[in-house]
Design a protein around this nucleic acid. Sequence first.
DNA 1: GTAGGGTTAG
Length: 774
Amino acid sequence: MNSKILKVVGLRYSSSSSAYIFLASIHVYYIKAATMATTSIPITTLTPHHRIPHIPTNKDRYFSNHPTILLINQSSNPKQLKQIHAQMIRNGLFYDPFSASVLISAFALSNLQDVKYAHKLFDQMPQPNLYTWNALIRAYSSSKDPVQSLFMFIQMIHGCNEVVPNKFTYPFVIKAAAELLDRRVGEVVHGMAVKMSFGSDVFVLNSLIHFYASCGCLDSAYRVFLNIQVKDVVSWNSMITGFAQGDRADDALQLFHEMQGEGVRPDEVTMMSLLTACTKKLDLEIGRWVHSNIEKNGIKGRLNLNNALVDMYVKCGSLEDAQKLFVKMPEKDIVSWTTMLVGYAKSGHFINAKRHFESMPKQDIAAWNALISAYEQTGNPKEALAIFNELQVSNKAEPDTVTLVSTLSACAQVGALDLGCWIHVYIKKHKINLSCHLVTSLVDMYSKCGDLNKALEVFSSADCKDVFVWSAMIAGLAMHGNGSDAIELFKKMQESSIRPNGVTFTNLLCACSHTGLLQEGRDFFKKMKPVYGITPGVKHYACMVDMLGRAGLLEEALSLIKTMPMPPLASVYGALLGACKLHGNVEVAEEASARLLELEPSNHGAYVLLSNIYAKSGMWDKVASLRKRMKDVGLKKEPGCSSLEVNGVVHEFVVGDNTHAQSKLIYGKLNEVFEKLKSIGYEPNRSQVLQCVEEEDMQEQALHLHSEKLAIAFGLISLTKSQPIRVMKNLRVCEDCHNVAKMISKVYDREILLRDRYRFHHIKAGVCSCKDYW
DNA sequence: GTAGGGTTAG
């Protein structure tokens, strides 16, 4: 333990051993506090107070009935409380411990909470009594800064105070440890509580259940639970909640049955936890059963319970039940309205959602967020951006982190770099805290909008880097084809002792696959389970199949599929099929597409790829019959669509598009481009014509009218030479377009960034970053 | 001479 830190804290060494262990276990917080030069929180908290000596008088006993004291509980705002405080200093009442404690708990605990003010009062108290200590520890435990509870607790057991923690103190301190998710601290406090013979206090034990469950130690929590001699309803609830939130819904339900068997009457909280369990399990039937149970038992707390019920129905997919309940709810609050709004929006009932939104009594930021994120998550990023724009214009609510995260994700999807940058500036201007979540969104947005340098800049300057931030950056490097940088970053991530998760590996394997780093990829895949403890999932196998397939090892890819411990999803065969296209392997392609169509009969990608493969081998009859089969099944393919942003406006093009205001200019430019390219030897790729006929349209010139060509032509006429042309395409880019883009970059001296469904192509001076390997 | 543990939207 650092003696400097001890000095900061002002502690004495002559402490009991358990207290010392406690101190040691929270030393990391002290280090943090001591290194925070600007925030004075721990310092002010821990500087010895200047205490005015208390002179007891025999009038003390009258103070509890003093009119000023009675006023405290009647005051309705902090200002009044402060006036009372002033008066109490004047008349000396403040120097009576009891009177001061009433005032402090009013500041610390009432709905007018101002913990900092309460703490200042506490510091001025001549002799804070145990009640006051507890009030403050409690207030901090549920505040934004639970560490302060621990600091107070230390002061309490170390300082020259005449108070000793009692059975009230421990639950608060344990709560603080739970809030901090700090297992070591909680365990030490647990030990101290036992030593102080509070080890069988049901309040202490219940808070311990909550603590262990919060830290993910459900088994420890359950051991504590089993050890409680006389369990009350809170004991059961704490354990049920622990199971419900720890993804052990079945155990939660099982425990509920046991609880009923023991004759303990469930209450509102029990039912709330059960609903959490149903919602996690997405089990509508059990949800309905809980609903009837609530009605049958006449459990109170209608508003909260009804809100949770509506949420359960929404999440379990019964919008009708949710709506029915919502309509007949006697009381509704903003949560009820928002939950229902999310229900409409997430299930794609956008008209209902908008109508509901407009009839809401109050449209707070959460309501806006519900709309924005629902649009963004259901693949309607443009609508999400429109709502965000509406929010900005209307000025009806202030965007918060959730708003920005959702909007950034929408920007990433459509490739709206200008708006994304604008949000980044907004964050800086409003000094919004760059949480890990926000950093992840920014890195993702910049990567997907093609500005990898900006993504790297955000990444390296971020203070907050969790596994999601690192994974997003690895994904960014992967999609831009910087495989070896991705691997380097993965190494750095481990040096920072951040543990990779399944997503990290998906991105890492993807990086290896895009760059052709076969040996590295194989290595990582092999190490996943034994070294990193992550069981490879379907996505990882899909990456490996893709990687092996690209390298031409189709047989090995096939045998890997056969060893998969889980049924392969369509993506696995899709990867194989893509590889067959690259290497022109008809035989394996036929098998792969057959399997793919078994899994997803309407996967047009399978038809398109297979027909491309036939075309490449000149098997035109097969192409024709495949086309007929597609028609028979009634398959319409997703239309190819490209977009690019000019001055903050996103322009969209579909194949053969002539709806654009500058359509004539665009086609004029396109003709000029083809003249120029032909003069230097460009020849349209015939196999690609067929691909296009399948892919985009049934017309002969379809090839020239591909959406990405239109978008690039528009870029040529509307952007300056210094601005790269950033085109986002929803499907894979075809070989002809890829070739044309390369030639344009050379002839017109332009930088072209082409994002397709899978990755980025950085095209400059006739060369593409993908090395024609995609 | 005051009190305490478990809960729901985005």
